[in-house]
């Protein structure tokens, strides 16, 4: 019955009074539309995507609820017991009898808890740096494509130059410079933000190039000319008309970029230039864990690595799926 109303409104069978008031049930309308959409249909039909989506949700949930579900706070020395050090996974400690699901490190730190806390850092850095790269890249791409001329040349040449270097190198370079500018006593606090800045700055190019290309297409369309005819300025046309129509591919790049950003963060942290040891991310955990790899404590490096692998792979699969769904040519 309720579904019926939504459908009828769209067919234009609703009465005048109903339709003329700002539709109060637009949220329901949107929901009905989504369940009816090609995106949802394609999602339902792709088991790989469903698994990937579930895994990402599980990991995100774990990160969000980390402090609530983790058995201990791995960064609070008061909660650590040195006697629990090097407890293997799935079994009790031979001295204290304590049980840790994924084992402990040399300090007796619970690996499971450390992963949950590390996941928070990794996801936070990944999401925020992609948002930063996205906002920067979309803005520059839009400006570049819509204005054209020397400003376009300038932005695109910078992008070209940046593309000739591996992005991780760029990120390290920016990280080094930014760290040098920050006073020593603030370095640990500022480290995460410097990390976000450097990953974001190393990833904006993809967004800018894609958005510029789409903007060049949209700019020539007649609805933009119609907007120019009523005297709308360039900025309002860019923001209100062009921007919504170039956002489709941005979503795809953003998702795939998230996987890249998470890996970039892990790489930087693994190299010791990223997240500080006081707030370890997955990358830091892996770096710490590698010291014990050859002494037989394999679990310290394995479980953080597996988590990173599953996270990056699932996000990437989601991005691939999104790209296929939103690209009508591949259907």
């Amino acid at each position: 019955m309720t579904d019926h109303d939504g459908t009828r409104t769209r067919n234009g069978d609703a009465t005048g009074a109903e339709a003329l008031v700002a539709e109060p049930n637009w949220l329901k309308d949107k929901a009905v539309r989504f369940l009816d959409s090609d995106v949802y249909f394609s999602f339902k039909r792709s088991p790989v995507t469903i698994v990937a989506f579930s895994l990402v949700m599980l990991l995100v949930l774990g990160a969000l609820l980390g402090p609530l579900i983790a058995p201990q706070n791995p960064h609070d020395p008061a909660q650590l017991n040195l006697m629990d050090g090097f407890t293997p996974p799935f079994s009790a400690n031979q001295f204290t009898g304590s049980f840790y699901l994924l084992g402990t490190d040399d300090q007796g730190r619970d690996i499971f808890s450390a992963i949950l806390y590390g996941l928070r850092i990794s996801l936070f850095v990944g999401v925020v740096s992609v948002l930063f790269a996205g906002v920067l890249g979309v803005t520059l791409g839009l400006v570049s494509g819509y204005f054209g001329g020397w400003i376009d040349t300038l932005i695109m040449r910078i992008a070209d130059i940046q593309l000739t270097f591996p992005s991780i190198l760029i990120a390290m370079l920016i990280f080094g410079i930014a760290r040098g500018l920050v006073p020593v006593e603030m370095r640990n606090d500022a480290a995460l933000y410097i990390l976000i800045l450097s990953i974001g700055l190393s990833e904006w190019v993809q967004f800018a190039r894609t958005v510029r290309g789409a903007t060049l297409v949209e700019r020539e369309k007649e609805y933009v000319q119609a907007a120019r005819l009523i005297g709308l300025g360039r900025i309002p046309i860019m923001v209100r008309h062009v921007l919504p129509n170039v956002m489709g591919p941005v979503l795809v790049i953003g998702t795939i970029g998230l996987a890249l950003a998470i890996i970039a963060e892990a790489t930087l942290s693994f190299l010791g230039v990223g997240a500080p040891p006081t707030t370890p991310s997955l990358g830091t955990l892996i770096r710490v864990g590698q010291d014990f790899l050859f002494s037989g404590e394999w679990w310290i490096i394995l479980f953080p690595s597996l988590t990173l692998l599953v996270l990056a792979l699932s996000v990437n699969l989601l991005g691939d799926w999104l790209r296929d769904v939103l690209n009508p040519k591949l259907r």
């Binding site: 609805y223 000319q225 119609a226 907007a227 005819l229 009523i230 919504p244 129509n245």
Partner: peptide
């Protein structure tokens, strides 16, 4: 400017696909 308007060739490209028709005409 207000007194001069234009009708375009391609009815698929001349309406912003993300806008409701009412908003397009109200602009």
């Amino acid at each position: 400017r207000r007194r001069i308007q234009m009708i375009f060739q391609d009815p698929y490209a001349s309406l912003n696909p993300r806008w409701r028709v009412g908003d397009i005409i109200a602009e």
